[in-house]
Nucleic acid binder design. Sequence first.
DNA 1: TGTCCACTGGAAGGGAGGGCTT
DNA 2: AAGCCCTCCCTTCCAGTGGACA
Length: 427
Amino acid sequence: MIENIFSSHIQSKPIFKGNRDILRPSYIPEELPHREAYIDDLASIMVTALRGNRPSNVLIFGKTGTGKTAVVRYLEREVERLKKDDHESDLDSAFDDYNVHQVEYVYINCEVVDTHYGVMKNIGNKFIDNWSEQIPFTGWPMEKVYEALKERIDEKPRVVIIILDELDKLVTKSGDTVLYHLSKINSELKQSKVSLIGISNSLKFTEFLDPRVKSRLGEEKMIFPPYNADQLKDILGDRVKKAFEYEKIMEEEVIALCAALAAQEHGDARRALDLLRISTEIAERERNPEVNANHVYKAKNKIEQDCVTEAVMTLPTHSKLVMYSILLSSKKGNEKLTTGEVYSGYEELCIKSGLDSLSQRRIADLISELDMLGLIHARVKSFGRRGRTREIQASVPRRETIRTIEEDNSIVPVKELTTLIQQTRLM
DNA sequence: TGTCCACTGGAAGGGAGGGCTT
DNA sequence: AAGCCCTCCCTTCCAGTGGACA
């Protein structure tokens, strides 16, 4: 056998059974434990579509990892299955009055597509196979995009169910123009009908909606509560059975620990699955045949550090410099800084790296963004005669984050100069 | 109680970049 | 080529703010 760098890894026994995606949050299992009632509720609303009528628009609320997207996509998959079964055999008589083929789903994640134009374009292009007829990603006036979208949907009789996931992101960023158009589209369609399912993490975004849009959109509302530790244990147990090659790969307590850690974080099933998957991967890498609690804690640290590293690495250059300025200015005790102090630090870094600095107003916005990302903690505080400003503090591990920023090539000159300055001070 | 500080945060608008239309 | 649309990133302007201080 030819030896190469993979040989020893290939020979070690895999813990996973074939498809490790089963432990990914995006995997939709055959059953969704503790969400049966919600599936049933949504199905009772959506069944109208199978009869060729427009189901009510639905708004679904719930924190991250509470199964909102999974439930909606579960139903979507069931409709696709019905279509397939109908092709292969005559469905039983219960479906005689229904026509599953006229139901079409369009799924848009508004965190990825977060502009009016983008959403309209994506929906319109779902109904066009011919590349040359696709709506371009920019260039058309909004009115034209809307007309094209309407025309395409209305080509034949059908019920189009548009799922807008992370809807709050779209509304807070680009307002409610899309929802205004989509919620009144039915009055302009001749043959087809459109129904909307909005999925959101927060109830708050409806405050930004025009009252007409709000009432049209929220014909039906569903709220998904967080999972508790026991429910998370069931979900994990279910996946473990499907995902692993042999029994007793992990103690009961490992599943319980993953569930308990995720339950502490507002009952997030996504986090529980990530913990389980990553701790298994760590065990596999250590060539340990069993996953133990130690692996779970390692996985927890890894997830937290990875989140910070990814968030920092994907920051635009100026945001990185602001973050860098905060980290360099705050000494070990994480002293609190003001906007003015951060800005002077940032300006210095700009000079060192040969970049033009942005205005203080713009930096104030970047500071808010960093706060929203959870990389810093910024609180508006008044110091009386000494003015009113933000009190800023890094909320990530200082040394590791500095290292991550310094790995960015565009900040390299800053790194070199900062080291030089530090060395000069020591002399 | 009024003043003052150091901003905050909203609004308006400029300009670059990507692309379509005429 | 000129004119237009849309988004994104940014600047400029300015009213508003909370609380220490005189």
